[in-house]
Design a protein around this nucleic acid. Sequence first.
RNA 1: GGCCCCAUCGUCUAGCGGUUAGGACAGCGGGUUUUCAAUCCGUUAACCGGGGUUCGAUUCCCCGUGGGGCUGCCA
Length: 466
Amino acid sequence: MNYLVSRRTNGNFLVRIEDTDRERLVPGAVENMLRGMTWVGISPDEGVMLDPGGEVMQKGNRGPYFQSERLPLYKKYAAELVLKGRAYRCFCLPERLQEMRKRQEELRQPPMYDRRCLGLSTEDAALKSKNGAPHVIRMKIPHERRITFTDEIRGELNFQGHTIDDQVLLKSDCFPTYHLAHVVDDHLMETDIVIRGEEWLSSLPKHLLLFEWLGWTPPRYAHVPLLLGKDRKKLSKRDGDVTVEEYMRKGYLPETMVNFLALLGWNPGTTQEIFTMEELIEQFSLERVQKAGAIFDLEKLDWLQGQWMRKIRLSDFASRILPLVAEKFLLAKSDPDFVKKARLIQERITFFHEAPDMMRFFYEEPRASAELIANEKQKIEKSQLSEIFMTLERVLGNVIEKEWTVTGLKAAVQSGLGNFSQGQLLWPLRAALTGLPYSPGAYEVAEALGKTKTMERLRRTARSIQ
RNA sequence: GGCCCCAUCGUCUAGCGGUUAGGACAGCGGGUUUUCAAUCCGUUAACCGGGGUUCGAUUCCCCGUGGGGCUGCCA
């Protein structure tokens, strides 16, 4: 959405890495995320991105764009806030805080910092910190304040100061929390709109206060609905939920994912369901973003995938599946008719990886059993089989190479039905050629296979079921 | 528990005071087809409840209820 909005408004799409929690660092996570972005067709204008060689790089003159490289900045503004009396040093140890919270919970009170360290004089606090006592810096939330703000998609919002905790801004390891880093960076990087998940809504007043205290104008904010799992809970990487990168690995097309994600929480107000990235950029608007969270349900995703699969140009489709098929069937590699065969399965598969199985019968001699061919539904009895195959061999044998096409074959079969219905001939033909209960049509398969192979398989099958 | 957000078919959603409450996915039924897929047609299915406001509420307001988020020296 951020990307769509930035493109829609000719803005700058900036990628910044928020790596302030050193305990949650995951090696390779940045590359993976960037690769995922590249895959769906999103390219940052500024900040952290992949260079043509696939290496992580930074571009732009408002960097660095890794928060872990901006520590002095956060420290500076935290100090400014302390100086202005808007924040204070807190020396309370995690153990004490934990106990405090436990007690508050028992008393059925909201768990909030009890401001013990606010009692410290500034001199004492400065001295303690000079002596190396570990501490954090907390916001001094004005309890009597009422904070009002207008969110781009939720309208006017209201918060009471006394319900807000004295948020930690700078941790004892000198890393900032998200809150400080967000405000400092988005001011310095001149962000004009912040589009983020609804989960941040309750932190908004803190951010607003920080902008005010630092004398800065806050950006516009749009809090978008959360993506929910089947359990209606927020989707989260930490809970092992799936990332875009994993859908990429599963074989979904980038177009599918872009299309699907855009439709979750947004709609164009028309009945259009299929969108390219370009169309989304053209039509997207925050006003039409939903307020309620949307369940990430896979039913429609697969339908969309099928739609996009069929939109691929045949030549592209063929070259995408060729390596997969050739890996299993060497013959495919040198098959001059590969594209013709690929065409027959394009509308039948949802994922590329289904192709080899679907095309197996082209490259391996099928074995069609009498049971498969003598099918009750097709009104074919075993006793008729030899006559059916004789008819087929005669009729098809008379088709000259030049007329060995779907239309030519069709004409030949239809004029040579004899005592049989069309179905009584075509089902055995298709089954003999493929050995499968379902496959592309008999004429199409015969054409793709060519006359020689078709006749061969016909004779073989006729012999084996006697 | 406290604070905040939200609420139309099973799911994604349209609707912005008067509609036979529309579409899509899934489901079901059928057409087409040699099978399967694709495709086409049809069909089941929803305004969370209660109060207001109004001639009239799915729509506006309030209260419930339900769901979600936050409540960390996580983001």
